Simulated scan of single mutants.
Amino acid sequence: MYTTLTATKHWAAKNQTAAFILKTVIGANVIAVLAQLAVPTPFVAISCQSLGVLLMGFALGRKAAVSALALYLLEGAMGLPVFANGKFGVGVLMGSSGGYLFGFVAMAAILGWASDKGCLKSVWKSLAAAMVATAVMYAMGLAQLSLFVPADKVLTFGLYPFIVGDVVKALVACVLVMPAYRLFQKI
């Protein structure tokens, strides 16, 4: 097995463009699969896609993570059922949960940047990066959600139901991040 991983790493070093494309496609589709683990709610589904963004952001680094999220949004916009609960289309991006989806791109950029800067050497630095990235995603999501619900209900529909789950997801991502990072470093 070690020889196979070494050969894969040598291939990736020689074929950087192909390896980047492969990381991007894998990242986008890991997020798409995790998005299907969702509980529908009136305005924003509770799903595992943010866990996917956390994992891919850390594992892929800034450039590949942002590319993976851009591909993920493009797949959904083009009609592939990759968003939470199998949703798709530009209408989802422009709807009540669209700000969170766009926020995932910013989230991936922050996580990837932190990963590139070495935060993966510390669970605490990884957790701090995850919390900052999640806060930015929430800011973007709540801003767009505010166009669809009364001002006094924005936090009720777009933040409060998700806080505990997202803290747990951040902890899970930090525990899993080193194995995921090692995997993608070998690809």
Rank of each mutant, 00 (worst) to 15 (best):
L111E: 09
N15A: 05
W11K: 06
K169H: 08
G61E: 06
A139Y: 07
L22A: 15
A84C: 03
V53H: 08
V172D: 11
M56C: 06
A130G: 10
W124H: 13
A173Y: 14
S122A: 01
A143N: 09
T3C: 00
L147D: 06
T156G: 13
A151D: 15
G141Y: 08
F83R: 05
L54P: 04
N29C: 12
K186W: 12
F184H: 05
I187V: 14
V66G: 01
L73F: 04
P161N: 10
L142V: 03
L5I: 12
V66A: 05
N85V: 05
M140N: 00
L73G: 10
T6P: 00
G52A: 06
Y72W: 02
V164Y: 10
A13N: 13
M78H: 00
F162K: 08
V30W: 07
M94I: 06
S146P: 08
V105I: 15
A84L: 03
G86Q: 05
R62C: 10
L71A: 07
L55T: 06
T17G: 12
G86P: 08
F157T: 00
A7D: 15
K117W: 11
H10C: 01
P42W: 07
W113E: 13
Y100Q: 04
A65N: 08
A106Q: 02
F184T: 09
Q185T: 11
V66M: 11
K14P: 04
I110P: 03
L145K: 07
I163Y: 02
D152N: 15
K186Q: 14
L51N: 04
P179K: 05
S47N: 14
G61L: 06
L73W: 00
Q36L: 10
G61Q: 05
P150H: 10
L51I: 08
M107E: 15
V33I: 13
V25N: 02
V149C: 05
M178P: 12
A7V: 04
G91Q: 13
M78V: 11
V92H: 05
H10A: 14
V175F: 15
L111R: 11
T156A: 15
V53A: 12
S67L: 14
N29K: 11
I187G: 05
F58W: 14
K87Q: 14
G95N: 09
G76H: 04
I46W: 11
F83P: 07
K169L: 01
F83W: 06
I26E: 04
V132A: 14
V136H: 12
K125I: 00
V90H: 00
P81C: 07
A32C: 09
D166P: 01
P81W: 07
A18H: 02
T17H: 09
Y181N: 13
P150V: 03
G61F: 07
K125L: 14
A12I: 00
L142P: 08
G95S: 10
F43E: 11
L55E: 12
F102H: 10
V168P: 04
A108E: 05
D116M: 12
A65H: 05
A64P: 02
A130K: 08
A170Y: 01
A180M: 15
V66Q: 04
V175C: 14
F104V: 04
K153L: 14
A133D: 11
L183R: 13
G57W: 01
M178W: 15
M94K: 00
